[in-house]
């Protein structure tokens, strides 16, 4: 059995229009802060925290979140996920999310920064019941190295498996291995340095929403600075990919889309998740 470096388990339920924790448990180098209500909508926001400040050689993290029927929750991190060099074994994070019918869960972690010679794997496994809504974003940066060079990390792999009523709905497997690939070339990062993604699954998805998102993105940034695409999933929902040259650009673009989706699907304008 895996020895977890940090473990967190959280279940949320709706209590008279307000989402509250039914169960919170964490141990080791993983922590969740007190719940925050940004407005009077009843939607709750939890900040995840890595007290160690970053992931180290061979670290194993596990998170398990359940959203009971009708609950609405934002999960985010308190700062960038940093992965330091992993000379012996890669660092790993596994997140299981279960969304019951009528629940809304958004997982909006800060950017991932992999340091020189770091290897990291992340796996999100999401089970949705019919009528649940899930929204996820991530930002993969070119990492950090002492000489300021890009892509000095060894390998980063981000996997998302999403199931709808037990059936495969989305499978997303991205790996950048600067140690093996020409990551800058055509077909890969194509001269860009940052990769942003959003995946949303919700029955409310329409073609009109996809058009609106395209338009919003076009208004938000200068076309020459970024490359982006939006497309409908095999199930009701959409994915967005963005190639850019800064975290800020991607955050801005993802925020605009998040705001639009939140307004359309929840009737809420999201609060700023400002953290510093």
């Amino acid at each position: 059995m895996t020895e977890w470096t940090g473990e967190l388990s959280l279940s949320l339920e709706d209590r008279g229009g307000k989402t509250v924790a039914r169960n919170v448990y964490f141990q080791g180098a993983f922590k969740v802060m007190r719940p925050i209500y940004h407005d009077d909508s009843g939607k709750v926001c939890y900040y995840l925290l890595n007290p160690g400040g970053g992931y180290l050689d061979g670290d194993r993290y596990r998170m398990d979140v359940t959203a009971e029927p009708g609950s609405r929750v934002t999960l985010t991190t308190q700062g960038a996920t940093k992965v330091y060099k992993t000379p012996k074994d890669h660092a790993y994070q596994e997140t299981m999310m279960t969304l019951k019918s009528g629940s809304y869960l958004e997982y909006l972690p800060d950017p991932l920064i992999a340091y020189k010679d770091a290897s990291y794997r992340q796996k999100n496994i999401v089970h949705l019941e019919h009528g649940a809504t899930f929204l996820y974003t991530d930002i993969l940066t070119p990492g950090w190295s002492p000489d300021g060079g890009h892509f000095a990390y060894s390998s980063v792999r981000l996997t998302n498996e999403i199931y709808l009523d037990g059936e495969p709905a989305v499978f997303d497997n991205v790996r950048l291995s600067p140690s093996e690939q020409q990551v800058g070339g055509l077909g890969f990062m194509e001269g860009y340095t940052h990769l942003g993604s959003m995946i949303a699954v919700g029955e409310q998805t329409t073609d009109g929403l996809i058009d609106d998102l395209y338009e919003l993105l076009a208004e938000t940034v200068e076309a020459e600075d970024v490359k982006y695409g939006v497309s409908r999933l095999a199930v009701p929902g959409f994915s967005i990919r963005i190639l850019a040259r800064s975290t800020g650009k991607i955050e801005k673009m993802l925020n605009v889309c998040h705001k639009k989706v939140s307004q359309e699907w929840l009737g809420l304008t999201p609060a700023s998740l400002r953290k510093y």
């Binding site: 997303d172 497997n173 990062m189």
Partner: peptide, 20 residues
């Protein structure tokens, strides 16, 4: 098996952009 479906971001983006 774990490498199944690995995508090259640029290729995938160009396939999304083709819609437009």
């Amino acid at each position: 098996d774990e490498d199944f479906g690995l995508v090259a971001p640029g290729l995938e983006l160009s396939q999304m952009q083709h819609e437009r």
